[in-house]
């Protein structure tokens, strides 16, 4: 058996390893923040420092002046909200059926959820591009939202099915015994209990759409229609050292909504993923 001294050494080693992990996870992000607040001369310095010597918000002002960030953010917000709301409205009833009835339909849904993870997007995006072109939906947020809804459905179904399974079916049966109709039971018993799960799923779909890049890159052509990630890439290219500041500032701002929303739902997301995984 190990004595107290070796145990102490093991603990110390564990803390050291944990600190190394924390540094690996956090330092790149801290560097992004640091760069965002550095004035141009400091960015050109041969010996960059972690903490800006003369912090400034000039980079943020310049970022807004260089690229239409506000409009891009508005586009992203509109697309992500529409996609998230539509996805849960469509997915919740299906998830309910999948969770409550075992049969061919449930098996097919689960199968599709798994298979859809393996799609190379390029095989799907070319036909989608042609279909949306025929519908005159290329270079429109509507077209993008349609793609986002379908794209976030597998995960939404997965999570929501897990949440429905976690609700005891006896509650609904009890309501039925008390004489409540089927619709009434769904609306007054199931829906309120499911609401937190629905909100978490919608927020996750929101983040996914807010962060998405590939479909937006292919489907949106004119700068006025483009979403935030696409506009951010306009900062790239032949960047001089002086342009790094605005780039970092814009990238930092684009991350904040996702971080805030994700922090709110993190526990629910991990819980939902697992209940879906464990019980299916």
């Amino acid at each position: 058996m190990s004595g107290p001294r070796t145990r102490g050494a093991v603990r110390a080693g564990q803390y050291l390893a944990l600190l190394a992990y924390l540094a690996f996870l956090a330092l790149p992000f801290l560097w992004l923040i640091s760069t965002a607040f550095k004035p141009a001369p400091e960015l050109g310095s041969l010996h960059p420092t972690w903490i800006p010597e003369d912090p400034t918000v000039a980079n943020f002002r310049q970022a807004f002046a260089e690229q239409p960030l506000l409009r891009a953010a508005a586009n992203s917000l509109a697309a992500a909200l529409a996609a998230a709301v539509t996805a849960v409205v469509v997915a919740t009833p299906m998830a309910y059926v999948t969770a409550r009835r075992r049969g061919r339909l449930s098996a097919a849904t689960t199968g599709w959820v798994v298979v859809s993870q393996a799609f190379p997007f390029v095989l799907v995006i070319i036909p989608l591009f042609l279909v949306l072109k025929n519908l005159q939906l290329i270079n429109t947020l509507t077209g993008l939202v349609l793609v986002y809804v379908v794209w976030s459905l597998p995960f939404a179904l997965w999570m929501l099915t897990g949440y429905v399974r976690a609700l005891p079916a006896e509650l609904e049966e009890a309501a039925a015994v008390d004489g409540a109709g089927r619709l009434r039971t769904l609306l007054s018993v199931t829906a309120p209990l499911l609401a937190p799960g629905i909100v978490a799923t919608a927020l996750f779909a929101f983040i996914t759409a807010w962060n998405e890049f590939f479909f937006a890159l292919v489907l949106l052509k004119t700068p006025e229609k483009q979403t935030l990630p696409v506009v951010l890439t306009h900062f790239l290219g032949a960047e001089g050292v002086a342009d790094l500041g605005p780039l970092a500032a814009a990238a930092f701002l684009a991350t904040l909504p996702s971080l805030v929303v994700f922090a709110l739902i993190q526990r629910r997301i991990t819980g939902g993923m697992l209940s879906g995984a464990v019980k299916s």
């Binding site: 970092a248 990238a251 996702s258």
Partner: peptide
Amino acid sequence: AMPEVVVGIMWRLVYHPDAGI
């Protein structure tokens, strides 16, 4: 939670030959 585009930009700043950490 970070957008992939931002992850890419962030690491470009880390890897930057002159101004990178």
